[in-house]
Design a protein around this nucleic acid. Structure first.
Lengths: 239, 239
DNA sequence: CTTATAAATGAATGCCATTCATTTAGTGAT
DNA sequence: ATCACTAAATGAATGGCATTCATTTATAAG
């Protein structure tokens, strides 16, 4: 857990072990009506969603399952979120706080970017179904994500990148990170050409010679290779 | 299991220009039973799916809509594809053939990569819902995609990249391309911090100064920046 | 002529997100 | 105290979705 960022606002609730409201499985039958204390809130929904995702994966994350996890009727969720997409947004923003931006302001710019990029990829490799959501997500709707951008922007500016290229540089890195996150989840034999191998000699040979020197995970090798290239190339913009 | 199946008898029809069977909207009521010539085949299904995607987007691509487009009952589709995922695979492989690999073997390696990467991104920017599918797709199931890899591998080898790094280099570029494809579809105001702008001075300033010099599309600027960095970095591996 | 089969039908099935009328328990004002 | 208001729950629809299955039938093969 890289920790870090976790900007002030919601830090109070976020700090508590997220399991509490998630695990509530009292089988006590409740009647409709306003309870003494609200059963649901966004923090509880987020925690329950994460718990569910961890146990059953994203296929298991249905509004019905989420409601059951919280011992509540599915329709009750809609008092606190407008849609399932909203739930995914809550989860996404929670995860953004786990990305390690501690390197910015500490060591070299290169090392800070390395730490950030690897942890960013690692976090979202476990949550690839969120990537299509993030990609189109206005930052306004995700405060933790926005906080991450602020820290990274500050680090880039301090390192001497021209202000007008900072967003482009971040976007380029992020695009690479998201694409690479998918890569982590790919099956090991994804490049096995099978019966078509005869028709693709160059590619088949390349796949074989990669596999031959295989201690490190292929996805990690590719990520390291691309990341170092990006760091060098983007670093050259500094003045 | 996709590919294989393709009942031999009807293979002849598969070779025909795929557009014909897509537009078939005869309202003639048919009875159950084997028709004189098969109404459906994978080429026709692919063409109809592309037509539908172009007209209604991926939300409009349902098995029911696809069947209607082909003037057939939804269940009939399952004689030719095992699942909706299979339909997406057919579409993906069709698109792979549109990617421009003509640069390999022609000009410089750098230019070939540029042409390939830009066209690859452009094709899939229109089809981002396919990206999660491609990412986990064994190449065996996608002959056109495999053919693309073969051409690119050959180009990389000819340019002097060590064989054991070719796959990693391609994966790194592809990851960047997929991530960047999402970027193209993002709304223009995605980085507008709105009410949070006060709390994020560096980021907000960076966004503003990017917008200030804005003739080119932001997604294109970021893609160009990252791509040139990758080309330089990966090119340095040549011997 | 018989038989096997590919390829269609349409009627389920089960899952899903979401909506809605309804109920109820607190809160705050009079 | 009483009353009205409202937040937050319920459970019963609703409509859409992919997929399955028993059934039908034209055709090709033997």
């Amino acid at each position: 857990m890289p920790a870090a960022a976790a900007p002030g606002t919601t830090a109070g609730t976020a700090g508590t072990s997220s399991a509490d409201s998630a695990g509530a499985s009292k089988s006590v039958r409740r009647r409709a009506g306003r309870p003494s204390a609200a059963l649901l809130d966004q923090a509880g929904i987020t925690a329950a969603a994460l718990e569910l995702i961890g146990r059953k994966g994203y296929d298991g994350l249905t509004m019905a399952a989420l409601a059951r996890q919280l011992d509540v009727a599915p329709s009750a969720l809609y008092n606190h979120v407008a849609s399932k997409r909203d739930v995914l947004l809550l989860v996404e923003d929670h995860l953004a706080a786990l990305v390690d931006v501690s390197g910015f302001g500490a060591g070299s710019w290169e090392d800070a970017v390395r730490t950030w990029a690897w942890s960013y990829r690692d976090v979202f490799a476990q949550h690839t179904p969120l990537i299509p959501v993030i990609a189109v997500l206005p930052v306004t709707d995700a405060p933790q994500t926005l906080a991450m951008y602020e820290t990274v922007s500050g680090g880039f500016l301090a390192a001497g990148l021209p202000e007008e290229r900072i967003v482009s540089a971040i976007v380029a890195l992020e695009s690479f990170i998201f694409g690479s996150a998918y890569d982590v989840t790919a099956p090991a034999d994804i490049f096995d050409a099978g019966s078509m191998a005869g028709a693709t000699p160059h590619f088949t040979a390349a796949v074989r010679s990669l596999a031959a020197r295989g201690d490190e995970r292929p996805a990690d090798v590719a990520f390291g290779l691309g990341l170092e290239a990006l760091i060098t190339g983007l670093g050259a913009l500094r003045r």
